[in-house]
Amino acid sequence: MAKQESKYGVQAGEPVGVIAAQSVGEPGTQMVLRTFHFAGIAASIATSGLPRIIELLDAKKTPSTPISKIYLNESSKKSFAKADEVAKKISEIEMRSITRRIVEDFSKGKILVMLNAQAMQAADLTAGHAAARLKKDLGLDAKVGKHGNIVIGTHTKNLKEVRAIAVKLTKSIVNGIEGAGRAMVAQDQKTQEFYVESAGSNIEPMMEIDGVDSSRIYTNDIFEMYRVFGIEAARTTLALELKKTLEEQEISVNERHIALIADAMTSSGTIQSIGRHGLVGKKESVFARAAFEETVKHLINAAAFGQIDYMRGVTENILVGKQIPLGTGSVKLSIKREEGKKKK
C-alpha cells in the first residue's frame, strides 16, 4: 500500500473526480462572458469557449465546426506546391456552387448543366474535370458539350427518373472528398512544414491520398477519431480539445484534471457524455441517479426490478446520513470478534 501511494503521488481515498470537476468548473464560470472574440481567418471561426466545452462534455456526435489537419509525409511537407496539390484533392466543391443553371431535356433524356465560368475559375476547375468526376461518382454519361457546358445522357426518357438524376446532380460533388469542406494549405509556426487544413472532417479517404502522413492526421471530431483510430485516440483528442479550448480563453487548468475527465468519458470503451444519458445516468446507485435527474423513472425501474443499492457512492451515503466512503471515511477499523468473546 505504502509503495503504491508513493508511486502515484495521490493518496488513496482522494476524491480526484470532485477536485477535477471543481477545478474546471470554477474558471468555467468566468468564461461565459468572454466568447465571440476575434474575427479573422476561416480556421479560427471554430466554436470556442463555453459552447465548445459543452459540446465536448455532452459527447455530441458531430462537432458544430469540424476541422481537420492533414499533415504531410517527409517528401511533401517542405513544398508548398505539393501541399497545394493535396489540398486540391481534398477541397470539397459542390456541384451547385459552380453551376449557373441546370436544364432538363425530357424529350431526349438529357440534362444540360450550364457552368458558372467565374466560379469555375475561382475553384481552379475545368469542365472536363467535373464531368470525369460525375462519371466516376454517379456512373453518369457526362461529356463536355458546346460552350463548355456539361451534357449528361440519362439513357431514359422517364420524367421522374430524369428529374431524380437532376436533383442528385445538384447535391453531388465535383471535386475533393465528401464532407471535407474547403481545404487550404497552412504552415506550422514551429517546424515551418506545410500542412492542409480543411473545414470539414472525413479522414478515412484523406489518408489514402498520396503525400499524406496518415499517422499524424488530426480532426477535432472525437467520434471520427474513435471510428478510425479507436478509443485511445479518441481519449487523447478529447483531452487535447478540452485543453485547447480552455487555453484559448486564457484559463489555466492542470492537465491532469482534464485527463481525468477524458479518461472517465472513455473508460467504458465508447464515448460517454457527462450527464443523464452518460456517466451520471450509468451510476450504480439508484439513489444517486434519482437524486440527479429523472427521479421517478429511476425509482420506478428500481421497484420493478427489485434493485439493491449497495451504498458505495457519495450521494447515496449523504442521503441516508452515513459517513461517505472517501477521504477520512475510506478507512475502516475492525476488531476481531472472536478475541472479545474469549475474554468473556
Partner: peptide
C-alpha cells in the same frame, strides 16, 4: 457539500448533513 467531499472531510460532512 462538494467542497467537503473534495477535501475528504467525511466526519465533518456527516456532522453538517
Amino acid at each position: 457539500r462538494d467542497v467537503l467531499v473534495a477535501y475528504g472531510a467525511s466526519l465533518l460532512l456527516k456532522e453538517r448533513m
